[in-house]
Design a protein around this nucleic acid. Structure first.
Lengths: 228, 228
DNA sequence: CCTTAGTTAGCACGATCGTTCGTTCTAAGT
DNA sequence: ACTTAGAACGAACGATCGTGCTAACTAAGG
């Protein structure tokens, strides 16, 4: 043993190169990012458990052992993949919503950003976390915990937006933010399920209309009417 | 070749023992049922793809090859498992709803039957189809088609109930049955996701309240008002 | 009773799983 | 320039995957 007790743990990006311990090389970091991007995509198709080292290595054109060296175990790879998916989700869904004005518009922006996240087909299997929640929910362990934490954070985010909208009088104060948040989360899940199953973006228009109606917004601005 | 072209397909229970072809034995049918019941349960934990012949055989205490003889391939086992899950779902969720009076009460009864289906913990991994839809949605083939068909049938069922409720004047005719069905399906999915992830029946009460409010029903039947 | 055919088990196969090891190459710190 | 250690590789491991093949057992129709 040359140094500390922990053998391999990474995950401290904010370390001031103290003590000459654990210094990842630049090309390694680039490869690791490429691995995780591919892993997040593959996981939406094969699941986090169905994701195999061999397939993943073949997908990015490197050897199993070379890839494996970046993570000490499959579980570490899964955890890093969840992290990566969280970053992507934060970039594509949360950030656009944060850029919107607080209140009802922010709630709508969050939903819209999610729908565009699906429509843009960032992942071939729809929303990473929608699948991961149902897959890992029955598998206790650190991976489930990570997925649950992200999901809880997302729900908290929605509820915060909803609460603000109520405080600003844009939603009736008789509305329960918890219930409305639950409904919006349900709309999001139903949209993802239908989109994944049918592969058609038609459901996104339905979902947008449902969100507008539920939030008491007019039909987008101009063309109201038929829909469905 | 002794008879028809199809080599092994079962799935015709209503056959009058014609021609002395394909006569399954009583003990075989019992075993097959036991296999499928265990398969449906295991699939809600490991997924339809993660379900392995070895695990399943060990779970019911028989050999891999003995079990395998009941189905010619893993795909056939998956198809039979989806069928079995469909039967269970029809018994536990659809039937109670069909027993309710047509109209708004039937919509509520369907949701309530689903919540009780979860609460009773028929499957350790929550709703079979909620998981199967997201898992198989990205995997083209007969299994996905079977899951999609069941899901479509369930949505049609809800929409039929909703439409009847509107026709009977129990719901405003300004409501779009497609949109309301989408919302109810979303509530169901969100309930399952939360229940699977947290394992707590607390979310069921929230879901029940959300359904009542969405359908314009008073808080349970007597005390209207506060409800928060 | 005897025959027939559906069960079931045992064994083994090629493939793939996650994982380990030893080695080579190369980026980076001195 | 020399040294150090991360990065990537090929090969191989034990285990398990789905899938066959064969033989013993047994319920059921004649």
């Amino acid at each position: 043993m040359t140094e500390t007790t922990e053998p391999k743990t990474r995950a401290q990006p904010a370390q001031p190169a103290q003590r000459t311990e654990r210094r990842p090389r630049a090309d390694g970091e680039r490869t690791r990012s490429a691995i995780l991007r591919a892993a997040a995509s593959l996981a939406t198709v094969d699941g986090l458990e169905g994701l195999s080292i061999g397939n993943l290595a073949a997908a990015i054109g490197m050897s199993k052992s070379g890839l494996y060296a970046h993570f000490g175990s499959k579980q570490e790879l899964q955890l890093a993949t969840v992290e990566e998916a969280g970053r992507i989700f934060a970039d594509e869904v949360v950030q656009p919503a944060l850029a919107a004005p607080a209140g009802l518009a922010q709630v709508a922006a969050l939903c819209e950003a999610f729908f565009e996240h699906l429509q843009r087909r960032t992942f071939p299997g729809g929303c990473f976390f929608a699948g991961a929640v149902l897959e890992m929910g029955t598998r206790p362990g650190p991976v489930k915990e990570a997925v649950a934490a992200f999901q809880a954070g997302f729900v908290d985010l929605i509820r915060g937006f909803v609460t603000t909208a109520i405080e600003q009088g844009e939603l009736s104060s008789s509305q329960d933010p918890v219930q409305l948040t639950f409904e919006l989360n349900g709309i999001i899940l139903a949209t993802d399920a239908s989109f994944v199953l049918n592969g058609s973006p038609a459901v996104l228009d339905l979902a947008r209309q449902v969100v507008r109606n539920r939030l008491g917004l007019g039909a987008d601005g101009h063309a109201a009417g038929s829909g469905q």
